Computed example of a mutant assay.
Amino acid sequence: MPEPPLLAVRGLHVTPWDRGRAVPAVRGVSFEVNAREVLAVVGESGAGKSLTARAVLGIPPHGAHVTGSVRLRGRELVGGSYADVWGRRMAFIPQDALTVLSPVHTIGDQIAAAVRSVAKSSREEARARAVTALDRVGIADAARRARAYPHEFSGGMRQRAVIAMAMVNEPELVVADEPTTALDPEVEAQVLEVLTNAREVTGAALLLITHDLRVVAGHADRVLVMYAGRAVESGPVEPVFHTPRAPYTAGLLASLPPAEADAADRWLPSIDGAPPSPTELPHGCAFAPRCPLARQECEEAEPTLAAVAGQPGHLAACHRSVDLPVPATRLFARKATA
């Protein structure tokens, strides 16, 4: 019998309130994360990626209504308590380290506090574990740097410290929400390598929220593509990236600049238009107004996520999925970026 998933999300809806009306921001998203696996969730801003992550973590926006199911090792979390889950079984790496690091406590004391929040450790034991955690994420002279304050760390070092804090109790699942957005490319690569190494040591699975498809290609096992609050494609990274069956996924991939693009070449494919507001969703497929293959049925009914023939685990939500060319990126014309 196959091992059950570590995390199973089924029919997740997240509905915040804005100016007195309900906003369908996440609409029936389902996915799984297996033990030791990396699942990347991608999509444009407003796709619902971060709201999905916050609902999984049990920290949706104030007043938001969450329905559906989020199960960690079979235990239902929606509507339940996260008291013995946070830190011990599930941890969070935010986009901005300063949102979780206190400016008035040392880095080492904050990591030690995370240790003592889930285990009966003495202060000395907790501090020793904090130093070990910092050393694990590549902080040189960890014992000395543990006595430093957040403002004494660079942005990349702060992000490493937050990774150390998330991993120090060896959780089963780590949720990382755009963990390298504010970093330059060289530091981003270093932080991602640190995160990968820390995962290998602790055995944690990772739910990675990102907009960077290059990060997905280099670090994820599977990918979930979201648009307008729904999943439009999912599956192992290789088939999704090489033979996408949802035009939106093809558009995202087409928009990537070549790895060694000519600096004088200012022409890149792009997706026309912009994602719809959650309060003004079209009646049928939400991507139809931007899709080069849209026809009448796309405007009348929203497609469901269905299996792609011949590709195990690959799902796509598109009425025209069988009509996509190979490569599907040909669907999108080249546009001037200047």
Rank of each mutant, 00 (worst) to 15 (best):
Leu6Ala: 10
Ala8Leu: 14
Arg10Trp: 04
Arg10Val: 08
Gly11Arg: 15
His13Asn: 15
Val14Arg: 00
Thr15Tyr: 09
Pro16Gln: 10
Asp18Glu: 15
Arg19Asp: 15
Arg21Leu: 11
Arg21Pro: 02
Arg27His: 10
Arg27Val: 07
Gly28Cys: 07
Val29Gly: 13
Val29Ala: 13
Val29Cys: 12
Ser30Asn: 07
Ser30Ala: 09
Phe31Lys: 07
Phe31Thr: 07
Glu32Leu: 02
Val33Ala: 05
Val33Phe: 04
Val33Trp: 03
Asn34Asp: 14
Arg36Cys: 11
Arg36Leu: 06
Leu39Lys: 01
Val41His: 03
Val41Thr: 00
Val42Cys: 12
Val42Lys: 10
Gly43Arg: 03
Glu44Arg: 08
Gly46Lys: 09
Gly48Gln: 07
Ser50Met: 05
Ser50Leu: 04
Ser50Cys: 05
Ser50Val: 04
Leu51His: 08
Thr52Pro: 07
Arg54Tyr: 14
Val56Pro: 02
Leu57Asn: 00
Ile59Gly: 08
Pro60Phe: 07
Pro60Trp: 07
Pro61Cys: 08
Pro61Arg: 12
Gly63Ile: 03
Gly63Trp: 03
Ala64Ser: 06
His65Met: 14
Val66Leu: 03
Thr67Leu: 13
Thr67Ile: 13
Val70Ser: 01
Arg71Met: 11
Leu72His: 10
Arg73Val: 09
Gly74Met: 06
Glu76Leu: 11
Val78Ser: 00
Gly80Pro: 10
Ser81Val: 07
Ser81Cys: 07
Ala83Ser: 14
Asp84Thr: 15
Gly87Thr: 00
Arg88Ser: 13
Met90Pro: 07
Met90Lys: 06
Phe92Val: 14
Ile93Phe: 07
Pro94Cys: 08
Gln95His: 01
Leu98Cys: 08
Leu98Met: 14
Thr99His: 07
Leu101Thr: 06
Ser102Asp: 15
Ser102Pro: 07
Pro103Leu: 08
Val104His: 13
Thr106Glu: 02
Ile107Thr: 04
Ile107Asn: 01
Gly108Lys: 04
Gly108Glu: 02
Asp109His: 15
Gln110Tyr: 02
Ile111Ala: 01
Ala112Trp: 14
Ala113Phe: 12
Ala113Tyr: 14
Val115Ser: 00
Val115His: 01
Arg116Pro: 06
Arg116Phe: 03
Ser117Leu: 13
Ser117Trp: 08
Ser117Arg: 13
Val118Thr: 15
Val118Trp: 10
Val118Gly: 12
Ala119Cys: 08
Lys120Met: 12
Ser122Trp: 06
Ser122Lys: 04
Ser122Pro: 00
Ser122His: 06
Arg123Asn: 12
Arg123Lys: 15
Ala128Phe: 04
Ala128Gln: 15
Ala128Ile: 05
Ala133Cys: 11
Leu134Val: 05
Val137Ser: 05
Val137Met: 06
Asp141Cys: 03
Asp141Ser: 12
Asp141Thr: 10
Asp141Trp: 08
Ala143Ile: 06
Arg144Pro: 00
Arg145Gln: 09
Arg145Thr: 05
Ala146Cys: 07
Ala146Asp: 09
